[in-house]
């Protein structure tokens, strides 16, 4: 198939940036979206133009590095699919495809489609862990975990930290990401001692990093490639209220 690509080009963080149009022929439906961009970049390189910079690594939907807004939707049109797992069979011959970076105050553009997501690491640093220094652990079977809790915790823990939730949110909020970690750790018995401080510290870090507030629009969960449910934000709110009460 042949495609008309309109891609965001921005030389560096200081550049203003703009959409640039490219025509691409002979795209196979079996290609992944990123393989299609590889083909474009091969051509740009041979033509002496600057290839399009984009983030990617594992290309199997788990590292969370790929990050494109495709026709206005983070990770594109397929439900629960990262950009790297999106295949060209979902597009049609002659289609125009807009490709843009994540856009959010907390994720400044580095170049073209590459953004800086270190604000997420800051949120984890504030409390997204269980303090268990190496060597200090009791036997793994010392504390059974009800299967239902373990399964729910696992579901929340599958968050890949890609940031699609932030890119989709009209407020640029990182609440789904934060809530996924709060939910995961809050459901584990090992996570109880730090439960109250964790939620307060992580939310403060979230706000300081420049993310917006949550107004329950639900855009985040609809684009989440791992299907992290909106209930995790309810759990976060509950934990937050409980922590504030405990503190007062």
């Amino acid at each position: 198939m042949s495609l008309k690509l309109r891609i965001w080009r921005q030389a560096d963080a200081a550049d203003k940036g703009s959409m640039v149009t490219y025509q691409l022929q002979n795209v196979s439906p079996d290609m992944s979206f990123l393989e299609m961009l590889d083909v474009l970049n091969e051509r740009l390189t041979l033509d002496g133009e600057d290839p399009v910079a984009f983030d990617h690594d594992c290309r199997e939907g788990i590292c969370g590095m790929c990050s494109l807004v495709i026709n206005g939707i983070p990770h594109g049109p397929e439900k629960a699919t990262t950009t790297c797992q999106l295949h060209m069979r979902h597009f049609s011959d002659g289609q125009t495809i807009d490709i843009e970076p994540w856009r959010a105050a907390a994720f400044p553009v580095v170049k073209d489609l590459v953004v800086d997501r270190r604000a997420f690491d800051k949120i984890i640093q504030a409390g997204g862990y269980i303090s268990a220094p190496t060597g200090s652990a009791p036997d793994a079977h010392a504390t059974p975990v009800p299967k239902a809790d373990a399964d729910l915790a696992f579901e929340a823990a599958t968050c890949i930290g890609c940031g699609a939730c932030v890119a989709a949110c009209p407020n640029g909020s990182g609440m789904l990401f934060t809530a996924a970690k709060i939910t995961h750790l809050g459901l584990m018995p090992q996570g109880q001692p730090e439960r109250n401080t964790r939620v307060i510290d992580m939310i403060n870090a979230h706000d300081e990093a420049g993310f917006g507030g949550c107004t329950n629009t639900g855009e985040c969960t609809s684009v989440c490639p791992k299907g992290i449910p909106l209930e995790t934000i309810s759990r976060l709110n509950k934990d937050y209220r409980q922590a504030l009460r405990a503190a007062s």
Partner: peptide, 19 residues
């Protein structure tokens, strides 16, 4: 395994709550 469980790694569990 002990270390990872202490960190909260959500391993698969059986209905009795054990790994």
């Amino acid at each position: 395994i002990d270390q990872c469980v202490a960190q909260g790694v959500p391993f698969a569990r059986e209905y009795g709550g054990l790994l």
